[in-house]
Design a protein around this nucleic acid. Structure first.
Length: 424
RNA sequence: GGAGAGAUGGCCGAGAGGUCGAAGGCGCACGCCUGGAGAGCGUGUGACGGGCACAACCCGUCCGUGGGUUCAAAUCCCACUCUCUCCGCCA
């Protein structure tokens, strides 16, 4: 959630900044208008309440003094004011709700350095690592190579659950588990993250905190009859675990890593990545989340991104870093680096991690604070990034390290976790 | 699913219609003491919103959430949510 005060104080800046994210300006105007009328009404009501409180105190004093006849008169006046207050309260509540619901639909403000853009084609490549492999045979896409050995099975997955699900069997399943362990070990032992095991089903308000709701409900799986949602990323519970808390300043930054499955409906992505396990309704991911002091979040984003990069380097996977332009930023993000891994089947780089600084946007929604140098509560900054998507990492290994006989070379860093040098 | 108990400030915990934003303790901040630290002593210390220069100050709101009764609610009534204990079931 954006800060209503920053909008009030510098509406032109916000108008301009949010224009690059395609926020309709009349929504901002409506918010400003609501805010203004709310404050006017609040001032009026506060005066009324002050009077009520005074009269009530007077009643108490008179009663104590035994002036019962005078009290009767006063009570009449008190009753009148009390009625007015009740009306005013109801009105305020209405306007407040209206305002809040508008505010919850406004995305975060882009950092000033974020490149302006109209679409994802305006994203900027910041850095490239490694070289795409060359093959002296025709490499296969994973959706052909995998099913040959039954280690990857889309037909039976469809039988169970429909389109966009996958089954891994045998050594590919082992490979997936090895990837999870490899990533967790790296982040816990070398990057000093705290590992967390989390609920995968969360309440509606939990989704509100990280920004998935109210705007993106059609992207989520919801369960009946309890109205619990399946998490689309571990970011959701990792962020919300600290909602309504004041974090110990001396313990910041908090760095969490968590492995979870992720569930996404992928509504509106018909026709996109229809083959294989690039875009499926359920996939595994290792997620990184930081809580920092505001002044440290920019450096933290660089650090977090390089922690995610380290995964790809150790796996010897060619990748590049892309900075998202204003049009492509996620709802909660002020600045995002995507890591894209080389996929021979696409002949292109494909997103495998997305690292974002959400500044105080999620912290404000979730009410997560710390005590600043004046010992005053202030919102922390929250960052998140994949470290990395397990399914896509598996695909990248299968495709990049495949050999003519259909076997797959396991990168050195992973051998201890897989227990084999070759799979297939 | 059945029975019961509870939800108060950063934390613990009093409080049972009016002067309670709320005793006391812990924690924290500052000061005294000390060669230094600790202990001890003293003082201070809630959040949020509005007015306003995000100062001082003033006003309002907040004791799980939402309603109600009342001139007045942490305190009374109703509903809901969550937590804990016991029983049943169960990986």
């Amino acid at each position: 959630m954006i800060d209503i005060r920053s909008l009030r104080e510098d509406p032109d800046y916000l108008r301009q900044a949010l224009r690059t994210r395609n926020v309709a300006e009349d929504v901002l105007d409506e918010i400003l208008h609501l805010d203004e009328s709310l404050r006017a009404e609040l001032t009026r009501l506060n005066q009324l309440k002050a009077e009520r409180n005074k009269v009530s105190a007077e009643v108490a004093r008179m009663k104590a003094a035994g002036q019962n006849t005078e009290v009767t008169e006063l009570l009449e006046r008190a009753r009148e004011i009390s009625g007015l207050v009740k009306e005013g309260d109801a009105k305020i509540r209405q306007v407040e709700e209206h305002l809040k619901s508008r505010l919850l639909h406004i995305p975060n403000i882009p950092h000033s350095s974020v490149p302006r853009g109209e679409s994802e084609s305006d994203n900027v490549v910041r850095h490239t690592w490694g070289n795409p492999p060359t093959f002296d045979f025709d490499p296969l896409p994973h959706w052909e190579l995998g099913p040959r050995s039954e280690m990857m099975d889309f037909e039976r997955a469809a039988k169970l659950s429909g389109a966009r699900f996958s089954i891994l069997r045998g050594l590919l399943s082992t490979l997936s588990r090895a990837l999870v362990n490899f990533m967790l070990e790296l982040h816990v032992r070398e990057h000093a993250y705290t590992e967390v095991s989390l609920p995968h089903l969360v309440k509606r308000e939990t989704m509100l905190a990280s920004g998935q709701l109210p705007k993106f409900e059609e992207e989520l799986y919801n369960t009946r009859p309890d109205d619990l949602f399946l998490i689309p990323t571990a970011e959701v519970p990792l962020i919300a675990q600290h909602s309504d808390e004041i974090l110990e300043s001396s313990r910041l930054p908090l760095k969490y890593v968590s492995y979870t499955p992720c569930y996404r409906r992928e509504a509106g992505s018909y026709g996109k990545d229809v083959r294989g396990m690039i875009r499926v309704h359920q996939f595994d991911k290792v997620e990184l989340v930081w809580f920092t002091k505001p002044e440290e979040s920019e450096a933290a984003l660089e650090r977090l991104t390089s922690d995610a990069e380290e995964v790809l380097r150790r796996l010897e996977l060619p990748y590049r870093i892309v900075e998202l332009c204003t049009a492509d930023l996620g709802f909660a993000s002020s600045r995002t680096y995507d890591l894209e891994v080389w996929l021979p089947s696409y002949g292109d780089y494909k997103e495998i991690s997305s690292c974002s600084n959400t500044t105080d946007f999620q912290a404000r929604r979730a009410n997560i604070r710390y005590r600043d140098s004046n010992n005053k509560p202030a919102f922390v900054h929250a960052l998140n990034g994949s470290g990395v998507a397990v399914g896509r990492a598996l695909v990248a290994i299968v495709e990049n390290f495949q050999r003519e006989d259909g076997t797959i070379r396991i990168p050195d860093a992973l051998i201890p976790f897989v227990g084999k040098e070759v799979v297939g």
